[in-house]
Design a binder for these strands. Structure first.
Lengths: 233, 233
DNA sequence: TCCCCAAGTGTAAAAAATACACTAAGTTTG
DNA sequence: CAAACTTAGTGTATTTTTTACACTTGGGGA
């Protein structure tokens, strides 16, 4: 779709909370923009106004790709944010003016959530963002607008999904160990889990199968490699 | 707020799915409008465009009160709907023209959910709606726009809340029997529950306390009346 | 006084959750 | 090549939760 045909809706945006898993820590995809006065920077979740001809889901996917180059991931809507003061701060306005025609418009945003393997997605800055990068959740800076609030609600939702075993395995490599799954769960949930009990539960769900291969090159007893039962999900 | 001061946002609406419980069946609050050609009627969920100066939550409460006279209930946001074709049907447009300045505008709607005691809320038609009424869920007619879809998703969400015991008791009278609670759950979930197991579970949650009163005037063994433990919720 | 009707109650079995400690199999180091 | 290191891998006992199931009770109405 060319710009000429785009019918940008000034009142509705989408924001994407993309969590990235690197086998160690939980990260979030952020963008950085220079402020108008050049000596300060602003961090934000990737997001933008929607186009009238697309669905909200399509908008989320398009915006994420345009801003970060990331596409083809499963983005799930989790909540709309519509406080009339959510875009009110002077610093936000200053920034907004640089790229929106009508920076004072009331904007409600529909927030989306995703979880991906970090190393499969190398974000690339677009003209829109000065920089796109993975930020560790533990040292999250202050974000534009109400984006810290949106992020916190996204994290609650993500954990809820993990507790109910509705997600997670798709983040693992083709072949993985039970230790990998456990570490994933521990990182997302932010707490340690009992090894034996965790294994019992995972194996009972029958979503993974052991292969006849083992890890190599590790400096300890090599673990059996497992693979996803795609048909069972 | 007078009309003159209202800054109506043409792109964002709220819709309210208000479930009503009458101790027998689950109902939904609907509005009826005459079509332009007067010989057909249209049913819909109560909803309308938001005003720029209010939050989404405030908009949902205002709109519900304006259209149906119902106020002071807990409305919970559950999802935004934004398919560009959601308001496309000829019959919908015909109707929309009668009260919106710009009936062709792309509208995304944020849907809210509530559950109330029917007999505490006598809906009253406003100028906006020809009629406001409780419709039994079992015989739901075809609704305007994508309102049947919105309703179905609301029901899924409501049941999910009940399964996890996050809601429900507030629908009961000041004094109620364990049988009342069970019936409420059975109606919402649409299935029968085992009496003894249900009682065990409810009592273990310690959200209700027995009083020293009993039912009177019933033609069977009178049940012990219970009351809510407000501090425990 | 007998009937009707929902209230009220207990137990056994199965399933799920939790707590807990040692041996095994590789790699590296001395 | 032996010792040290590191994570893999395993079983059991206990508690908690879930499920299935049938009879007696107390009041009102006939």
């Amino acid at each position: 779709m060319t710009d000429a045909l785009k019918n940008i809706n000034p009142n509705v945006s989408v924001d994407c909370v993309v969590f990235g898993f690197d086998n160690e820590k939980l990260n979030v995809l952020l963008i950085e923009q220079k402020m108008a006065n050049k000596d300060k920077v602003q961090f934000a979740l990737p997001g933008d106004l929607i186009v009238d001809e697309e669905s909200l889901d399509d908008a989320a996917n398009r915006v994420l790709e345009e801003i970060t180059g990331i596409s083809g991931i499963f983005l799930r809507q989790f909540k709309a944010f519509g406080d009339p003061n959510r875009v009110s701060d002077i610093k936000d306005l200053d920034w907004l003016k640089s790229y929106r025609r009508n920076p004072q418009a009331r904007v409600i945003t529909v927030a989306y959530l995703a979880l991906v393997k970090m190393d499969e997605f190398q974000p690339e800055a677009s003209s829109f963002a000065e920089r796109v990068f993975w930020q560790e959740l533990e040292s999250m800076p202050s974000l534009a607008f109400d984006h810290n609030k949106i992020l916190n609600e996204a994290l609650d939702r993500l954990r809820d999904d993990f507790v109910n075993h509705r997600t997670g395995f798709e983040l693992l490599p083709e072949l993985f160990t039970l230790g990998h799954i456990q570490k994933l769960y521990e990182i997302i949930l932010g707490k340690e889990l009992d090894k034996r009990n965790f294994r019992k539960k995972i194996l009972k769900e029958k979503l993974v199968s052991a292969t006849n291969q083992k890890q190599t090159g590790v400096l300890h007893k090599p673990a059996i490699l497992y693979t996803l039962n795609h048909d069972n999900i």
